[in-house]
Design a protein around this nucleic acid. Structure first.
Lengths: 251, 251
DNA sequence: CCCATTTTGTGCGATATATGAACTAAAGTC
DNA sequence: GACTTTAGTTCATATATCGCACAAAATGGG
C-alpha cells in the first residue's frame, strides 16, 4: 500500500475511541492524549469530531462515549453471517447441556465472543457478543490457537502477557505449545479453572465444508457442578453434534 | 466549534464503517462510495486504512470487517457502568418472570440494547447488546420517548420512518403522541404485536436517584403464552421492584 | 493566597489529504 | 467481437490537518 493511501487522521481517531477501554468511561483531553500517545491538539480535534457527530458527549471537561458508538461494532455482528447462523444452534446446545454455550473467533491474542446463549449466571464474568478473553487461558482460545501453524501460535503467545489468573493457569510458553499439540490431536480443549477459580469449560473448533477452522464453540460450567474430568464425557458429544450440523452451513 | 476542530477524514472513515450495515458483509469500493455518498478515491483510502490497521480484510475486490472492529463498540459497553450494573438484576428478573428481560437506552430514533437476559428464544428477532429497534414501536422506546419533553418526542417521530411492521403497528404521529401521554401517566408501556406478530412486551423507565430517566427495562413474551392484557398484571410488580432496587444505584 | 504544576485553547508554517478528471481494466449486452 | 457500462486506480493541485510553541486558565499544595 502506498503512503498516500493511508488516512492518518482516521487511524488516530480510531485510536482515540479505543482509549475508552475498561473502566475508562470519562476521559479528559490530556488523559486521552496520554493513553493514545498522540498530540493533545490532535486528540482534542478527534474528540470534538466524535462529539459533533454524536458519538461522544462533552461537558467542557470530560468526554464520554454515547451508545451511538455501538453502531460501529454492531456493523460487524449484523453484517457477518456467522453470529446469526450459529445462534439457534447455541440456544439448543445450551438448552440440552443446561449450561452456557458460546461461539468466538480469534483477534490477535484474544478471543472475541460473537454469539452466546447463557444460562443462569453464576460466575463473576459477564460475557456477551463483543467480549474478549485472552486466548492462552480460554478453551476456545486454545482450540483457535491449535488450528494455526505452530510458528504463528508461538508468535501470538510471545505477544501475550501470560498472567496467572489462578494458581492453575498455565503460563509457560513451552507447556502451552505442548498443550496446543494435545488439543490439535484430540480435537477439543478443556480448561480447568485457569481463567477464574470455579469455572471450567470445553471447546471444539467450528470448521467449514473445506475443513478450515472459522470459529470455536464452547460450553462453560461451574466447577462445583461438573468436574473438569467429566466435561468431555458429558458435553463433547453435544459439541461434536453441533460442530457437525454447522459444518456444511458455514462459509 | 471552529471549522478546523473537525477532522473530516475521521468523520468520513466512520461513515464508511457504518456502510457495513444490515446484510452488507462485503462491499466493493464503488458500493461503499454509493452508500456513503463519498468520492470513490476517498472511500478507497478509508478502506485501505481500515485494512492496514486490521479492522478490515481486503481480497482485492471485496472489503469485509474483522472482529477487531468490535473493540470500538465494546469501548462503550465496557466503559459505561450501566450495563454491568443492571445485568444481575435482569438475570433475576428474567428468572422470576420466565421470560427475556432487557435494558436499553435511546439513540436518535432507535432504542439500543445495552444488557439482556434471554430465555429460550421463540421469536425470529435475535437481540443482543448493541441491537437496535425503532423506538416508536418498541415498549422501551415508548417509555424513553415518553420521558422526553413532548416537542422533542415529536421531533424524533418526525425523523422516523413510521412503518407498519404488523397490522397492529401504530403509525399515526398523533396517535403515538397520545399513547406517549398515556405511558407517561401510567408509568409503563405495553406493546401488543406492533413490532412482530406474536410478540408482546412491557417496559418501565429506569430512573436515577434524582428522578432522571436514564434507560428502560422490559420483559418480552410470546403472545401465545401471555395475552397483552395480562402483561401488566403479571410482570409490572416485578418490573417495579427492579426499578426500585436500581434507582439508588444508577449514576 | 500565591506559586508551581497541570491542563486546555489557539495561531501558524510544514506537511498530509481530498478532489475530480483522466486512465485502465473488467464485466455485461447485443 | 465491438460497444456500453461499471469498477478501480492514478495524478496534479487546491485544501485541510498536524504538531509545535505559546498563552490562558484551572488545579492543588503549602
Amino acid at each position: 500500500m502506498r503512503e498516500t493511501d493511508f488516512v492518518s487522521g482516521f487511524a488516530r481517531g480510531l485510536k482515540v475511541i479505543e482509549a475508552f477501554g475498561e473502566a475508562r468511561p470519562r476521559l479528559t483531553i490530556a488523559e486521552a492524549a496520554k493513553i493514545t500517545e498522540l498530540d493533545r491538539a490532535t486528540v482534542r480535534r478527534s474528540l470534538l469530531t466524535l462529539s459533533e457527530l454524536g458519538y461522544a458527549d462533552y461537558d467542557g471537561k470530560f468526554f464520554t462515549l454515547t451508545p451511538k458508538i455501538m453502531r460501529l461494532g454492531h456493523a460487524y455482528l449484523s453484517a457477518t453471517p456467522l453470529p446469526a447462523l450459529v445462534q439457534p444452534y447455541l440456544d439448543q446446545l445450551s438448552e440440552k447441556a443446561g449450561q452456557s454455550a458460546s461461539a468466538s473467533v480469534l483477534d490477535g491474542t484474544e478471543v472475541v465472543y460473537v454469539a452466546r446463549a447463557s444460562q443462569r449466571r453464576v460466575m463473576s464474568i459477564n460475557l456477551m457478543p463483543g467480549s474478549r478473553l485472552p486466548a492462552y487461558c480460554a478453551s476456545m482460545g486454545r482450540v483457535l490457537l491449535a488450528a494455526l501453524p505452530e510458528t504463528e501460535a508461538r508468535e501470538i503467545l510471545k505477544r501475550t502477557e501470560l498472567r496467572a489468573n489462578t494458581p492453575r493457569t498455565k503460563t509457560d510458553p513451552e507447556d502451552l505449545i505442548e498443550e496446543l499439540r494435545r488439543v490439535r490431536a484430540q480435537g477439543y480443549a478443556v480448561i480447568d479453572q485457569e481463567l477464574e477459580l470455579g469455572l471450567c469449560s470445553i471447546a471444539v473448533p467450528l470448521m467449514n465444508a473445506r475443513g478450515q477452522v472459522v470459529a470455536a464453540l464452547n460450553i462453560g460450567a461451574p466447577a462445583a457442578h461438573v468436574a473438569a474430568s467429566e466435561l468431555a464425557e458429558r458435553y463433547l458429544p453435544l459439541l461434536k453434534e453441533t460442530q457437525g450440523a454447522l459444518r456444511p452451513l458455514v462459509q
